[in-house]
Design a protein around this nucleic acid. Structure first.
Length: 514
RNA sequence: GCGGGAGUAGCUCAGUGGUAGAGCGUCAGUUUCCCAAACUGAAGGUCGCGGGUUCGAUUCCCGUUUCCCGCUCCA
């Protein structure tokens, strides 16, 4: 194991990911795109295998879970129903001295509240002074109250106007003109006002028109909710049942960092489990346990994962937790498990005007199901597996090797077929074996460089098995198979090679642990 | 978004106001053959991008962009 600082290890992993074709920065030759990455030849395979393992563990292993693939484009009203439009459309401003960020509208409203406080004080004072106090009369005639009320009205009118015109410079000017200070630093050293918009928008159709604006989905979950009835009816699903989906989602993060941990375009693997109201906490706890088992089934040390229960809950949830993974930069969220109540389906009922209910024939009643969600970031899972697998080893003979000890069924390349030397008919024999194995697995054939070097190259991309063709192969039709982690070799018959590799790289063992 | 650090070959990094370097890697060949061997040869860089100063800038200055770290943010 490496004894480098975590930060150095993380840098090594990022370099390794690039050097061996796992992850490249997007548009690199054009100076790159912030927080966007491409998966290379090996990364694409690893990612596909992780997705496949998740999918099979959900859809194939559970009779009551089915998978769908909904579109990235969805009706704009969906994001009003889900709350995404309102919750993430705020003008923000930073104070350069305190480094604190505020919502510009809140700063202005607080300022107005202060002026209102002054009016209230005047009213109180006057109320004490006069016996037959006519508050309404006082408010409409007292010059100081009048003056302050006019201030408030002016600010409100100006602010409303600025917001309607989407004039952020004017919003800032209001803050400057009102001499609003930062509550923490007390300074008026403000940045410009910026619109923080979580969702990417684009136009559909050829005419650029406000009414054609649609959003790239910021989460895949809504595609499941809006298809709830379609799937339930056509699949004749009985509650409790789940709908799984993997796919891209897009969030315009202000701060997007830590390699592929937080990207603007990312892939989610989500499963929404529909249950009878009242039973949701049982299912929530069951899925917590099930999902943690899934992570453990990959054979990583148990102390790499932990639960983080949410104390402050989102508006839609009545229970929520994260599964956190010990990344090179610390424990961070890898997966979320949320009890979402009937919030989403009820909202869609309200906004679409369609009933989204389930009829329970046993109790002879209809209800809006409650939902327990498991949602995991595929890219984060990729990073977790990559960082956990990356090992810089010191071998007994004093040499170094870098190895990815990936679970065999996740490895990009399952098997390398290597002639010991590139003469004496060994390459031809190795090609024959390659032609058989390639129907079962993604294999590579390599004859360049010494055998040791070729082994190390395969170690670096996590290839679990190397089959070596030597002179004995020509005599008795046997080859050696080398295991990546132990570097041990075993001699096996050529015609058994395919089945032996198949058994070793099979996902079955992991699925059985679930 | 603020602050700090960085950007030179595929990777890790030297270096200099005057034609661009190493190690490893890659490719071709020779030779050896079971854990990054050796030898020969080759490819690969407008020194992140733009502007300024200068006779001349990879080097100095300004801007910008990307990455890493801290803060902030995080349905």
């Amino acid at each position: 194991m490496s004894n480098q600082a975590p930060e150095e290890v993380f840098k090594s992993i990022i370099s390794h990911a690039k050097e061996y074709g796992f992850v490249f920065q997007s548009s690199e030759i054009y100076d790159g795109m912030s927080a966007v990455y491409d998966y290379g030849q090996n990364g694409a395979e690893l990612k596909k295998n992780i997705r496949d393992y998740w999918w099979r563990s959900m859809v194939q292993m559970n009779e009551n879970i089915v998978g769908i693939d909904s579109a990235i484009f969805m009706h704009p009203t969906i994001w009003k129903a889900s709350g995404h439009v309102d919750a993430f459309n705020d003008p923000l401003i930073d104070n350069k001295d305190s480094k604190k960020r505020y919502r510009a509208d809140v700063l202005i409203e607080d300022h107005i509240a202060k002026i209102e406080g002054k009016i209230e004080k005047e009213v109180e004072k006057a109320a004490k002074r006069f016996e037959n106090f006519d508050e309404k009369m006082f408010r409409s005639t007292n010059p100081r109250v009048q003056e302050n009320q006019k201030k408030i009205d002016d600010i409100n009118a100006r602010f409303k106007d600025a917001l309607e015109k989407n004039d952020l410079a004017e919003v800032k000017q209001i803050i400057v003109d009102l001499e609003i200070v930062c509550p923490i630093s007390g300074s008026r050293n403000w940045t410009d006002v910026r619109q923080f918009n979580l969702m990417f928008s684009t136009q559909i159709g050829s005419v650029t028109d406000e009414s054609n604006t649609i959003y790239l989905r910021p989460e895949t979950a809504q595609g499941i909710f809006v298809n709830f009835l379609n799937v339930q009816k056509t699949g004749r699903m009985k509650i409790p049942f789940g709908i799984a989906q993997t796919g891209k989602a897009f969030r315009n993060e202000i701060v997007a960092r830590q390699f592929i941990f937080r990207m603007r375009e990312f892939e989610q693997m989500e499963m929404q489990f529909f249950v009878k109201p009242g039973t949701e906490m049982d299912w929530y706890n069951k899925w917590k346990e099930t999902r943690m088992n899934w992570h453990h089934s990959l054979g990583f040390p148990q102390n790499m994962h932990r639960f983080h229960d949410h104390i402050k809950l989102a508006h839609y949830a009545n229970a929520a937790c994260d599964i956190e993974f010990n990344f090179p930069f610390g424990f961070k969220e890898l997966e979320g498990i949320h009890s979402r109540t009937d919030f989403d389906l009820s909202q869609h009922e309200k906004f679409s005007g369609k009933k989204l209910q389930y009829f329970d024939p046993e109790d002879n009643e209809s209800f809006v199901p409650y939902v327990v969600e498991t949602s995991i970031g595929l890219d984060r899972m990729f990073l977790a597996i990559l960082s956990q697998s990356y090992k810089e080893e010191k071998l007994e003979d004093g040499s170094d090797r870098v190895v990815l000890n990936l679970p065999a069924f996740l490895a990009p390349i399952k098997c390398a077929i290597l002639p010991l030397v590139k003469k004496d008919g060994l390459p031809e024999k190795a090609r024959e074996i390659m032609d058989v194995l390639k129907y079962d697995h993604l294999c590579v054939y390599e004859e360049k460089d010494s055998i040791g070097k070729r082994y190390r190259r395969q170690d670096a991309i996590g290839t679990p098995y190397c089959i070596t063709v030597d002179h004995q192969t020509l005599e008795d039709n046997t080859v050696t198979i080398r295991e990546r982690d132990s570097m041990k070799q075993e001699r096996i018959a050529v015609d058994k090679a395919a089945s032996i590799v198949s058994e070793k790289v099979d996902m079955r063992a992991a699925l059985k642990k679930l």
